[in-house]
Design a protein around this nucleic acid. Structure first.
Lengths: 164, 164
DNA sequence: GACGAACGTTAGTCGCACTAACAATTAGAG
DNA sequence: CTCTAATTGTTAGTGCGACTAACGTTCGTC
């Protein structure tokens, strides 16, 4: 009864995939990211957190108080979604949302002391999860891996392809 | 009018992300995969196809006619979703779905000649897209990259963590 | 003082991974 | 040989993340 789930393909007892799929880099990338995301999401959920929380807290830590628009640009979280994230963080006392007196369109988001402690906690959690994800790789290979990813991201970050 | 979209963070003009995020491997992985997925999805959509179509056709090519359950195991597509995929492929004449006389619970899915031609076409398309995604990497680096991904996948594919 | 842009917000779309439940059929245990 | 458990295909539905549309408010500018 290990694989007793109903409508699904047992991810464990899966039969071999065809070579075309095993060698398709975009597929490898997607599957690996899916797995990694799952670990991260589960790990953070156990601490009542989400990736977005970490992204926002980390940004506040490094750049200081900021408007939601600026946070959106730095974290690449959509402004519409950011509203919810800030709500959640504010509910838990990790940030404060106040109107900006200098520009009354904006809110100033400020990290609290509790928020700073929270960030440290999430730092540790994410480091542990990252270790788990990259477990089979040596230190040098991990460096290679993140380096390759960074270069791919940098390249595609610059050149936008939507011309229509 | 580059950044004229309404509710969103302009992914182009984004300001610098904090170091914590830039160095977080799980985040790099997620963002890279997101970008790759987008390119793949758009590219295939232009040919009225989806990743799943390719996965199913490739599996049929390598292992011959199969039941939907077997296809599900090999492609890791959920059986429930596979129904739709087979519908789409059958509509377009790339596969045929027939009841299995030997086991009347099953359907036998068989690839047609059109399906084979389709597979070749998608092979080319995906190769081109993969080239695009991996553009900034040298041949040797691409090999490294897929090798690292494969090892990560293999590792996590074996040890399942859901015991409950 | 009018107009366009930026900001925060609400609501909603779309696709994907995944679950639940079910009828039909088959296999296995007693 | 029968009865139960498991497998197969299918429908429906959940949850979440990325993304769009639209709106009222405020700011800069001319």
């Amino acid at each position: 009864m290990n694989s007793s789930a109903s409508g699904m393909a047992d991810p464990l007892g899966g039969e071999a995939a065809p070579a075309r799929l095993r060698n398709l880099p975009t597929r490898l990338l997607a599957l690996t990211a899916l797995h990694s995301d799952r670990l991260v999401t589960e790990g953070l959920a156990g601490a009542d957190a989400r990736q977005w929380h970490y992204a926002v807290l980390a940004t506040l830590q490094e750049f200081g108080p900021a408007s939601q628009a600026e946070l959106s640009r730095r974290t690449r979280i959509y402004r519409s979604d950011l509203v919810t994230v800030i709500n959640e963080l504010a509910e838990r006392g990790f940030v404060e949302r106040a109107p900006d007196p200098a520009d009354r369109r904006r809110n100033v988001i400020t990290m609290t002391g509790q928020g700073r402690r929270r960030l440290h906690r999430l730092d540790e959690l994410l480091a542990a999860i990252g270790d788990d994800v990259l477990a089979p790789l040596s230190r040098e290979e991990r460096r290679q891996f993140t380096d390759l990813l960074t270069r791919l991201l940098d390249h595609h970050g610059r050149s936008r392809h939507r011309d229509a």
